[in-house]
Amino acid sequence: MSALFILIGISLFVAGSFLAAFIWSVGNGQFDDDYTPSIRMLFENQPKESTTEKKTNQNKS
């Protein structure tokens, strides 16, 4: 049963570090915008292809 004391300590430490991470992220502004990032991720797969195309376009002109 004395293992319980250690386990409680560990669990509180783990939970506490999550709380600290949460407070840090709040202060960091991660919860300020809850809409735009959901749209932004839809665009993300595009840059590679377009940079190569851009080059060819520049060559043409």
């Binding site: 300020d32 915008d33 809409y35 735009t36 932004r40 665009f43 851009k54």
Partner: peptide, 27 residues
């Protein structure tokens, strides 16, 4: 609309000098 975000966040491809643009839709 969502296309607005796309266009605004891709300003660096339209104009040379823009290094980064980030939209905040709600605001």
């Amino acid at each position: 609309c969502s296309s607005c975000i796309f266009l605004l966040e891709n300003l660096h491809r339209i104009e040379e000098g823009v290094t980064r643009s980030q939209a905040h839709f709600e605001r």
